[in-house]
């Protein structure tokens, strides 16, 4: 469904991503693992169009979206739940969700979806009228995911959803992702928390120093030395 081929991304003189390729098939959960600074966030940000690519192609459902800006990418069905949650702090929970549906014209459908998410996350219903900045970390993550889903994407990318959250909350979130997959969503999950991520994924990639250094079935990668090496930097450099 999503194909990244030989992506190059530069920040000024630094090459942050040096030729990374990955694919995500329909209905899969694919994890992108790697240590801090490996280039994972850069890669998905480039995929969704926030950062321009210096080389390579991005295809979504067969269509070349390499040059599309972020606003347009969201329109074709690919969206990102960004790192650090990034909920709109001064807007209420409800307003966050409404803004998430900015691309949609069907008011009734939007209201129905908001109700559905309130059902999925009762805590959001309780806080519907309060400003998002008053929510806890876990609540904000739920809001961010719900907001990302408001535009009814077909592929959801999440960047480090477990970051800074208590283990129990992380569990809840990962359970949610599984539920979403069961409902037909395709997911690309960027995570540092390798073990948890691998447990819910079909396949996974490992990134280090701007490159994809490993890829394969999640089951194979659990407990694999290659993954540990990549995290500890023993993988090949350059």
């Amino acid at each position: 469904m999503l194909e990244l081929a030989d992506i190059q991304v530069r920040y000024g003189a630094t090459q942050a991503v040096r030729g990374a390729s990955l694919t995500v098939g329909k209905g899969e959960i694919v994890s992108l693992l790697g240590a801090n600074g490996a280039g994972k966030t850069t890669l998905v940000s480039a995929a969704v169009g926030i950062i321009p690519v210096a080389g390579g192609t991005i295809r979504f459902e067969g269509r070349d979206i390499t040059r599309l800006p972020a606003e347009a990418v969201v329109g074709v069905g690919l969206t990102l739940c960004p790192e650090g949650r990034r909920v709109f702090a001064d807007l209420t929970v409800r307003e966050n969700l409404i803004l998430g549906a900015a691309t949609r014209r069907d008011r009734a459908g939007v209201e129905a979806d908001i109700d559905r998410f309130f059902g999925m996350f009762p805590i959001l219903r309780d806080r519907a009228g309060t400003e998002a900045k008053t929510l806890s970390g876990g609540e904000q993550q739920m809001l961010a995911i719900a907001r990302a889903l408001m535009c009814r994407p077909r592929l959801l990318m999440l960047d480090e959803p477990s970051l800074g959250l208590a283990p129990r909350i992380v569990e809840q979130i990962f359970e949610l992702l599984v539920t979403l997959k069961q409902d037909g969503m395709t997911i690309l999950l960027v995570e540092q928390n390798a073990t948890e991520a691998l447990m819910i994924s079909d396949r996974a990639y490992v990134m280090a120093n701007g490159r994809i250094v490993h890829g394969g079935k999640a089951a194979d990668l659990i407990g694999s030395q290659d993954v540990t090496d990549a995290y500890l930097g023993a993988a090949a450099h350059g």
Partner: peptide, 24 residues
């Protein structure tokens, strides 16, 4: 209005507003 919400949100975080599909 959606554009109004987008403006309030953009005051703090323009990039994420774009992720909602709202044109900068």
């Amino acid at each position: 209005t959606t554009i109004g919400l987008a403006m309030r949100a953009a005051a703090r975080d323009f990039t994420t507003v774009r992720l909602m599909g709202v044109r900068a």
